[in-house]
Computed example of a mutant assay.
Amino acid sequence: MNKFLSIFIAAVCFISALSCSSAKLQSQHIQRQWMLISFGDFTKEQLIKSKAEINLTAPPEDGKIKGTAMMGCNRMFFTLEFKSKNKVEISGLGSTLMACQEMEIEDQFTKVFEKMTRYQIDGHFLTLYDDKGAEMKFIAADWD
Rank of each mutant, 00 (worst) to 15 (best):
A10E: 01
G92L: 07
S50G: 06
F109N: 03
N2F: 04
L5P: 04
V112E: 15
S38T: 03
W34D: 01
G133S: 08
D142T: 15
E45K: 13
L47S: 02
K132W: 00
R32Y: 11
V112Y: 13
G72S: 06
A141E: 14
C13A: 11
M98T: 12
F8T: 07
I15D: 02
R75A: 08
S21V: 05
E102T: 13
H29Y: 14
S95P: 03
K24L: 08
T96A: 04
A17Q: 07
Y129T: 03
G67Y: 02
N55A: 05
Y119F: 15
E114Q: 14
P60D: 02
E89R: 14
I7Y: 05
F42D: 01
L18Y: 11
H124Y: 10
Q26N: 14
G72P: 05
F78N: 07
T57Y: 09
Q31K: 15
G94M: 12
M116T: 10
A99Q: 15
I15P: 00
T57H: 08
F138D: 02
F4L: 09
S27I: 14
I37S: 11
Y129E: 05
L25H: 05
F42S: 01
A23I: 02
S19T: 12
R75E: 10
N55E: 06
N74S: 03
K64Y: 02
M35T: 12
K85L: 08
D62I: 01
L18F: 08
L47F: 08
Q31R: 15
S22N: 13
I105P: 00
Q33V: 15
W143D: 14
F82S: 01
S91P: 04
G133T: 13
I65P: 05
F14I: 06
A17Y: 12
C20S: 09
L126A: 04
A141L: 12
K137Y: 01
G72F: 02
C20K: 07
I90V: 12
Q46T: 00
A23H: 11
A23M: 13
N2D: 11
K83L: 10
Q46D: 09
I37E: 15
L80P: 00
P59C: 00
I90E: 07
F42G: 02
S27D: 14
A69W: 00
C20P: 00
T68Y: 09
F8C: 07
I37R: 13
A69R: 03
I105V: 08
A11W: 07
D107R: 13
A134C: 03
G123L: 01
F109C: 04
I54F: 06
D144W: 14
E81F: 01
T117D: 11
C13F: 13
G92N: 14
Y129G: 06
A11F: 14
P59V: 01
A141P: 02
C13V: 06
L56N: 05
H29V: 12
M76A: 12
A10K: 02
M1I: 06
C73A: 08
Q120K: 14
P59E: 07
F39N: 03
K44S: 07
M1K: 08
Y119I: 02
I37N: 10
K3N: 14
S19R: 11
